[in-house]
C-alpha cells in the first residue's frame, strides 16, 4: 500500500459548532478562517507529522461532524483511536454535557484511547469573563475523575493549539510506541487494529 503511514489515530469529537474543524485548521494550516460557519459533512481526515524528540510521529486526525445524524457512524471514526480530543465550547454549557456523553462512549468502547478534554474559544472568555459558562475547576475535577487531560485553547489566537497536539504526540510516543517495537505504525485497517490492541495489552 502506498498510502501515507499513520502512527497514531486521533479523533476529534464534540457537539456541532464547538470548533473542532477550526482547531484542526489552526494546527495543520496555521490559519483561522473568519467567515460563516461551515458544517463538516461526515468526517474529514488529515495527516500531520510532528517531531517528538528525535522521532517523527504522524498523527492521522479524524475531524468528525458534530451533527447527531452521524452519531451512529461515529464508531468507525473513533475505533482504534489512540487519542480523542473531546471539544466543548467554553461559552456553551450544553456542549460540555455533550462532551460528557462522548467521554462515556469512549470509556465504554475504546478503553485504550487517551482522552483530552479541550475547551475551545478561549479568546471569547478572556475578553469577557461573564461569557464563560463552563467553570475551569468543574472540568478539572471531572478530568481527574476520569483520568484524562484538560486544556483550554483558542483557534482564533492559536493559544495552546500546538501545545495540545504536541502533548498528544508526546503521550503517544511515551506509551504505545515503545510497546510496539516490531509494529511501528498502527496497521491502517481498523479491523485488524482492534485485534492488535487485544493481543498487545492482554
Amino acid at each position: 500500500m502506498t498510502a501515507m503511514r499513520v502512527d497514531a489515530k486521533v479523533v476529534m469529537l464534540g457537539k456541532e459548532s464547538v470548533g473542532k474543524t477550526s482547531l484542526v485548521e489552526r494546527y495543520v494550516h496555521h490559519r483561522f478562517l473568519v467567515g460563516p460557519y461551515q458544517n463538516t459533512i461526515g468526517a474529514a481526515f488529515v495527516a500531520k507529522s510532528i517531531n517528538v524528540g528525535d522521532k517523527v510521529i504522524t498523527l492521522g486526525i479524524w475531524d468528525t461532524a458534530g451533527s447527531e445524524r452521524y452519531e451512529a457512524m461515529s464508531r468507525i471514526y473513533y475505533r482504534g483511536a489512540r487519542a480523542a480530543i473531546v471539544c466543548y465550547d467554553l461559552t456553551d454549557n450544553s456542549s460540555f454535557q455533550r462532551a460528557r456523553f462522548w467521554v462515556k462512549e469512549l470509556q465504554t468502547f475504546e478503553e485504550h484511547c487517551k482522552i483530552y478534554l479541550c475547551g475551545t474559544k478561549n479568546d471569547l472568555v478572556e475578553g469577557d469573563r461573564s461569557a464563560r459558562q463552563v467553570d475551569f475547576h468543574d472540568v478539572q475535577d471531572f478530568v481527574e475523575e476520569i483520568g484524562a487531560q484538560h486544556i483550554e485553547t483558542s483557534s482564533k489566537t492559536g493559544n495552546n493549539v500546538d501545545a495540545l497536539f504536541m502533548k498528544v504526540a508526546e503521550d503517544f510516543s511515551n506509551s504505545a510506541f515503545e510497546l510496539l517495537p516490531e509494529e511501528k505504525g498502527v496497521n491502517l485497517d481498523p479491523k485488524k487494529n482492534s485485534y492488535l490492541y487485544t493481543c498487545c495489552h492482554h
Binding site: A43, A44, F45
Partner: peptide, 8 residues
C-alpha cells in the same frame, strides 16, 4: 481541508 469520508 482534508479528505472527506461520509455516508451517503
Amino acid at each position: 481541508q482534508g479528505e472527506g469520508w461520509t455516508p451517503v
